[in-house]
Write a protein that binds this DNA or RNA. Structure first.
Length: 572
RNA sequence: GCUGGAGUAGCUCAGUUGGCAGAGCACGUCCUUGGUAAGGACGGGGUCACGAGUUCAAUUCUCGUCUCCAGCUCCA
């Protein structure tokens, strides 16, 4: 049996149950989705959690009564008449939008009828394992100005075992939620009420993690021919008017005045890099020029969209702009794609999905430029033999883009890298280089980020690893646990040797039992604990305890240092 | 921004049908000097998110604001 069909049928049974319980509720749509299904209803009073139980019970009754799904083809006018009689206004609207003279309807038993293309299962009895999960608001047709409906989400599987597995996965995802474990492990927090929503504070351990990521990126960018720059956090609004951002995103920008002159807190790094490009006459021999900045930007995101580290109001992008000749374009795009993949692997991500987003409804620049830009991105993807989906109309206002979404350990996707091809801003800002005949030409500009926002990437990293970071990224790599105060001296010597070897190390000589301190080390997700007692002090050794693995043996201190530094070097 | 739910100690949560605010963990002091996942005793800690209103009395009821959660819309 097809899982989508089962879920779709399950959504019909849910709608059937809702109509039985609340005959006045109007039906909107109810498709199957990636992990289940939903159905949208227009109902005056809100559904409560209690109502979900009632609906589930009613669904079980319907399923037990072995109701059959019956497909019928009817004339449009007859269908309109039918749904008008049932007072299903939304269904009437849907049929009116259909072009075919015939429409299909599905009856479930002799009480419930729905406009539906199908297919469906034969009998409700085939539904063995389902669960309703949540209620939320959703706009009719997904359009913000339309009335808001109530959406009930649910899921269904072929077997109870699979359903249990799915619910367990949801629970696992909840347990490793970065919003929970981040503050708990002393990585970061967001002081919503005092400092403001969507603004991140990195604690010492989180700052170490962030700095490690930044250091890796700086080194790697310099290696690959990028030049680092730094640009101001505030710039006059004229720049943003010229770039077009002012027109498109004014409501999401922080605009204020200094001495009667309007300024903008930067929401993007591009204009800054453009000014640096324009600072001197560029020759074709200078290109490509790759300007890189860990650029902190602020955007006035709507209150309802903020979410942990994933959507914040102040964040830092690993942002670069590449100014190149037309004939260099594909190679530059290819270079960025390679750079993205190499970086992802270093941080433990080996699975991703690629999307090519094309021209949106609102855009700047000529259609010809858009065609060339899209072609450049697409042909590079093809050249590299990469699979991708087209995301029609989802490009930036100034150019098409390639998005690379990471898949984490729980198969969830995270938007991080993006590569955007832009002919429009170079034109608007009058960017130029002098070609080999001494003539001024316009360079092409690539906007790109690898990790995207450091905040979001760190959120993804925390959930991907469940904060069990590889040794090179662990904020505290080694914890020394002296068995008793008599071995403090040797323990401090071990600590200073480890620090000298470049390891991040802490000592726990608190007045707690050995067991308690080991437990704390485990809960704090410290990769290695070194238990040191009289035996070790006498022999100049350390007893190594690996997180999650327990005691893995006693070795000479120098051997542990060698082994750990090797592990760090290899970024294992 | 929209729909619905929620906000009690640093954290996880009880509780008050309107009448002195509770536990566990964490924190502090003391005892305990422990060999691989929670030793013991005592103690400090609260504008019950914030601001108004009703009331003899509001953490509790009403209204407003802020913030969070599940989604929707948006994401340069």
């Amino acid at each position: 049996m097809n899982l989508d069909t089962l879920r779709h049928s399950c959504s019909h049974i849910m709608a059937y149950a809702v109509k039985e319980l609340w005959p006045d509720a109007k039906l909107a749509i109810g498709p199957s989705i990636e992990d289940g299904f939903y159905y949208d209803f227009d109902k005056k009073t809100p559904f409560t959690d209690d109502d979900l139980f009632k609906i589930e019970n009613k669904m079980r009754e319907i399923i037990a009564s072995d109701e059959k799904f019956i497909r019928e083809e009817v004339n449009r006018d007859a269908a309109i008449k039918l749904f008008r009689k049932l007072k299903e206004d939304y269904k009437v609207e849907l049929i009116n939008a259909l072009a075919d003279p015939k429409v299909t309807i599905y009856k479930t038993g002799n009480k419930f009828v729905d406009l539906c293309r199908g297919p469906h299962i034969e009998s409700a009895l085939e539904i063995k394992a389902f669960k309703l999960l949540s209620v939320a608001g959703a706009y009719w047709h997904g359009i913000e100005t339309n009335p808001m409906l109530q959406r009930i989400y649910g899921t269904a599987f072929l077997t109870h075992k699979e359903l249990e597995g799915h619910l367990k996965n949801l629970e696992e995802a909840r347990l490793r939620d970065h919003r929970k474990i981040g503050p708990a492990l002393g990585l970061f927090d967001i002081y919503h009420e005092e400092a403001g929503a969507g603004l991140v504070f990195y604690y010492p351990k989180g700052a170490i993690l962030r700095n490690l990521i930044e250091e890796y990126e700086k080194k790697e960018h310099l290696k690959r021919g990028y030049q680092m720059v730094t640009t101001p956090h505030i710039m006059q609004s004229g720049l943003w008017k010229k770039s077009g951002h002012y027109d498109y995103y004014k409501d999401n920008m922080h605009i204020f005045k200094i001495d009667e002159q309007e300024y903008v807190l930067k929401p993007m790094n591009c204009p800054g890099h453009i000014l640096i490009y324009k600072s001197q006459t560029r020759s074709y021999k200078d290109l490509p020029i790759r300007l890189f900045e860990l650029g902190t930007v602020y955007r006035h995101e709507k209150a309802g969209v903020l979410h942990g580290l994933l959507r914040v109001r102040g964040f830092t992008q690993d942002d670069a702009h590449i100014f190149c000749l037309p004939e260099q374009l594909r190679e530059e795009i290819g270079g960025v794609i390679d750079f993205v993949f190499d970086t992802m692997k270093v941080f433990g991500f080996y699975d991703w999905a690629i999307e090519l987003s094309t021209r949106p409804k609102d855009y700047i620049g000529s259609e010809e430029d858009w065609r060339r830009a899209t072609e450049a991105l697409e042909s590079t993807l093809k050249e590299k033999g990469l699979k991708y989906d087209i995301n029609e109309g989802d490009g930036a206002f100034y150019g098409p883009k390639i998005d690379i979404k990471l898949k984490d350990a729980l198969k969830r996707s995270w938007q991080c890298a993006t590569i955007q091809c832009d002919f429009a801003l170079p034109k608007r800002f009058g960017l130029a280089y002098v070609d080999n005949e001494g003539k001024e030409k316009q360079p092409i500009m690539l906007h790109r980020v690898l990790l995207g926002s450091l905040e979001r990437f760190i959120g993804a990293l925390i959930e991907h690893y469940n904060a069990d970071f590889p040794l090179w990224l662990a904020p505290v790599q080694t914890l020394i646990i002296p068995v008793s105060s008599s071995v403090i001296e040797y323990s401090l010597k071990v600590m200073s040797d480890l620090i000298d070897a470049g390891l991040r190390v802490e000592i726990d000589s608190s007045n707690e039992t050995l067991n308690k301190r080991i437990r704390n080390a485990e809960l704090n997700k410290i990769p290695y604990s070194l238990v040191i007692g009289e035996r070790e002090a006498m022999a100049g050794t350390v007893a190594i305890r690996k997180k999650g693995k327990g005691n893995i043996g006693t070795v000479a201190l120098s051997d542990f240092i060698k082994q750990a530094t090797e592990e760090i070097k290899n970024k294992q």
